[in-house]
Design a protein around this nucleic acid. Structure first.
Lengths: 259, 259
DNA sequence: CGTGCGCTTGAGATACTTCAATGCTAGTGG
DNA sequence: CCACTAGCATTGAAGTATCTCAAGCGCACG
């Protein structure tokens, strides 16, 4: 990892390589010609930044000044109520575009905070919006991403509205597994899992205590084991059963990317 | 209301008036030049249809063949689980575009069903997508709509994940009130409310019985009265209190349209 | 060598559900 | 025009999934 003093030089030297990485791993840029992307990065004053774990990337009420594209690490976006109740709306990692820009909102409605150390691109929001207006392919991608996010969020609405704690947690784990499989970040049925039980609780609308009990039962039934920040699916069929999900639905989940 | 045999003539005769109505009341078309809209209606083989109450507009698993724009009446979109649990994802009415097209999905993932008799435009999905690709202004509108829907759906996630039954129901009522105010369909704090308690239950993730008890308490505290398909807000401040919402937030809700 | 954070477990509380019965109203068939 | 039915709102009583409070434990970190 470069020191921040070295960034300027780094960016100039290896921009071609970085553009390639962006095209390959970032759905938002997946079908854009490298030349166009390079121009977009210029225009939006794109810069690589790093955040420590727990660092805030944006806060509720702040003005929207930039768009972030995660290259490494995990981030969460959440809503915080006056009395401290917290609802995590999504977890994002490599390739994901946070603070999905495009709504007419000029101010952040949610908190975005690093869960692990994070490396990300920051693009200027205003010029990004302008670029999306000029570049149809980018605009098309943005729309696709918005619809994909909408679809995933509706799945979550059903989970929280109509499913039991066991189903909710099992489905969250399977959604993340599908996400990691898709990105090639899982080995077998094992993937990095930097989340605390309180994260799972706040994403599923449960209590950390209840998440703990549920996870203990998952362990006993050999569905899922979480140790040392690594999640291992013991028996996927058991997990699918707990989630009330068929194998076909799980496979559809994997395909359901903004690809 | 015309008989179906008379439609063809009607459409040809009064297309100009209809285009004007669409531009005025449908956010999706709000900033499109009338000529363009007329062309889009031609290309997508736009036709006005009516559905009786309870009629299905689309079913889970069916192929997506068209896009609907509601002109009158109410529609609900919902997810139905294998064991009969139902989660209503949204209610739509005049001006709303259902089956928000644009995702890559070729098949419906949800049920859409009329709650009241409905009058709507049906546009061919494939040619609509093509039109959106050619017409930047339409595309831009579609994106805006997607982000607005995403934002509303995230509000619901927080409601279902972290709020009590009282708050959930109060907030649903306030969201609908804001929606009606925005469209000018409410007189004072009174609006048409064609929903059964079971609809509220399935939208808020509760039981019809519990919705009933909560609504009875709303009535006793003079927050809300529902009679004969009409909802009246008795004291909006009480309702806001029950919803844990400030007046400022409520006003923001009204502005939060894809305008 | 404390101190704090996260995990685990127990015991009791509660918000919401489930089951069940009653009444009201509108529609339907005779 | 009346009896019959079906859907919806309402209410009571009992059950339960999940929460709250509380305590102990292990590990990482300063």
């Amino acid at each position: 990892m470069e020191k921040s003093t070295a960034w300027d030089r780094t960016i100039r030297v290896s921009r071609a390589a970085e553009v390639q990485e962006l095209v390959a791993h970032v759905p938002l840029f997946g079908s854009i010609r490298p030349e166009s992307l390079e121009r977009i990065l210029e225009q939006t004053n794109a810069r690589l930044v790093e955040d420590a774990s727990r660092q805030f990337i944006s806060r509720q009420g702040q003005e929207v000044t930039d768009v972030s594209i995660i290259m490494e690490g995990w981030v969460m976006r959440y809503d915080l109520l006056a009395d401290g109740r917290r609802q995590i709306l999504e977890f994002d990692t490599s390739g994901d575009t946070v603070v999905l820009f495009g709504s007419s909102a000029t101010h952040h409605q949610y908190f975005v905070q690093a869960i692990t150390p994070v490396r990300r691109w920051m693009l200027d929001a205003k010029s990004f919006a302008a670029a999306a207006r000029k570049e149809p392919e980018l605009h098309r991608r943005l729309t696709l991403l918005a619809f994909a996010a909408l679809s995933e969020r509706e799945d979550v609405v059903t989970d929280l509205g109509r499913r039991s704690a066991t189903e909710r947690i099992a489905r969250l784990i399977l959604r993340l597994l599908a996400r990691m499989d898709r990105a090639g970040s899982s080995k077998g049925h094992r993937y990095d899992f930097p989340f605390k039980q309180s994260h799972i609780a706040d994403a599923t609308g449960l209590t950390a205590v209840h998440v703990n009990r549920t996870l203990m039962s998952f362990r006993k039934s050999n569905a899922v084991h979480i140790d040392n920040g690594v999640l291992t699916v013991g028996d996927i069929n058991v997990l699918l059963l707990l989630a009330e999900m068929t194998m076909a639905e799980f496979r559809a989940l994997k395909r359901k990317s903004p690809a």
